[in-house]
Design a protein around this nucleic acid. Structure first.
Lengths: 234, 234
DNA sequence: GGAGCCACTATTGTCAACAATATGCTCTGT
DNA sequence: ACAGAGCATATTGTTGACAATAGTGGCTCC
């Protein structure tokens, strides 16, 4: 069992060994980590040269990222990295609330005892880490690690794919963009604990409610942070 | 196996005019309507010849369909049309329940009075149609038309895209595969009426509850139908 | 001097040939 | 006759060149 996976070899890297697959992963990480900035245009020849591939695989990679929601594409005008404004983030968190809420409910029904035990261990590791470092940065990735376990345990592959292959990367991108935004880790721990309790009780409604409140609070916290920041800058 | 007729005036056809875009739409309709059967392998050279395009645009089309969930793809082995087993359908309807439930809640908050009036007109048309034809087939597409209006009125573009660009096509494919499955139209009308009431009252929680029950019932109805059919066949 | 048109350039869309990989078949050996 | 290895073939992955389109700059005309 490993906690927050070290670096780029993300949990969702069942990527293939083809150039197209590797390029997708590389380009995706470049965008998420901000090496290619938000709103920037993706120039095919230059990127192809940069990644040392032809334009064919690169274009396929771009198409996959479009499906992921990381870039937009207009015919004959090319692709540009999405800009995550406050509105988009709020929308994203509403979708997360709906999807992960349902995932929590299903997890309460379908998770094996072994999986629940594993979830407890993950929470314990996060708590230790929080105590040791006084609420450190890793919390961000670690937080998703917890959510990831719940999602994988829900038993609905379609739901899990939607969350992990598409929305997850948008969340990561947002977190890289506003890495200065922390806090909430103490509260998150408590809420995660509540969720485990609900799942352990095999109570889908309670699990869904807890998860939805958890995400709704995160959403509100982000809104407060971003709007106050706007005020400061203007 | 035939090619799809060139007419594909789907609701979501903001497709571009490029060969890639048109091929995507054509191939998509061919798969949804069953011209290319479930589980069938997509042979690139042969399909390219049928659609009169090169393999480049065709491959991009396939990639988009993979993102849509209509086909799966394995490196060096090619793409195959998904087979919608009972399990997949159940998963799909759980995702719909979560997403459309939230959409209904948001619609209750954000829909304009004009949009609500339009929704009422759509419902009225469906009711007329139902009375005239004693519960006819068109109900299937009409039903989604109603849901479509709610989704568009929710004001969350990300949510709407997820539903209309991805899940919607899977639902359509399922309906084409089991077009003999009807019924429920009377009940659906009542449930749609309840939803409008909730939206009109600007009651998000009630709207979400009504929508979720509506979809959950549809799910159960499908399960009963498909399992009984299994029994008959075996 | 400004507005509109035209050519040019940079970039995207498309194609056909080439390379690499998987699958199925044959041939051989026991 | 059967199992396994190796080859042949079909299919996918990749490439560089070609075509078409949108944006840009300069030029002319009013």
């Amino acid at each position: 069992m490993q906690i927050a996976p070290a670096d780029a070899p993300s949990l969702t890297d069942h990527e293939d060994n083809t150039l197209s697959g590797r390029t997708t992963a590389d380009l995706r990480e470049a965008i998420i980590k901000g090496d290619i900035k938000a709103g920037e245009k993706l120039n095919e020849p230059s990127l192809a040269k940069q990644f040392k591939v032809s334009r064919g695989p690169l274009r396929e990679a771009i198409r996959r990222l479009v499906a992921m929601g990381l870039v937009t594409h207009k015919p004959h005008q090319g692709a540009t990295v999405v800009t995550l404004g406050l509105d988009s983030i709020m929308e994203l968190y509403d979708v997360r609330e709906a999807l992960e809420g349902k995932a929590a409910a299903l997890a309460a029904q379908n998770m094996s005892d072994e999986q629940i035990a594993h979830l407890k261990r993950v929470l314990e590791i996060h708590r230790r880490h929080h105590e040791d470092t006084a609420g450190e940065y890793l919390q961000a990735e670690g937080d998703f690690d917890f959510h990831y376990q719940v999602i994988q345990g829900c038993g609905n592959r379609m739901l899990a794919d939607q969350l992990c292959n598409e929305l997850y990367h948008l969340v990561r991108m947002f977190r890289y963009q506003t890495s200065r935004f922390k806090s909430r880790s103490q509260r998150a721990l408590v809420e995660h604990e509540q969720l485990i309790y609900a799942i352990e009780q095999r109570d889908p409604q309670m699990a869904e409610m807890v998860m939805r409140h958890h995400i709704a609070r995160a959403k509100q916290s982000i809104r407060n942070f971003l709007t106050s920041e706007e005020d400061h800058e203007q």
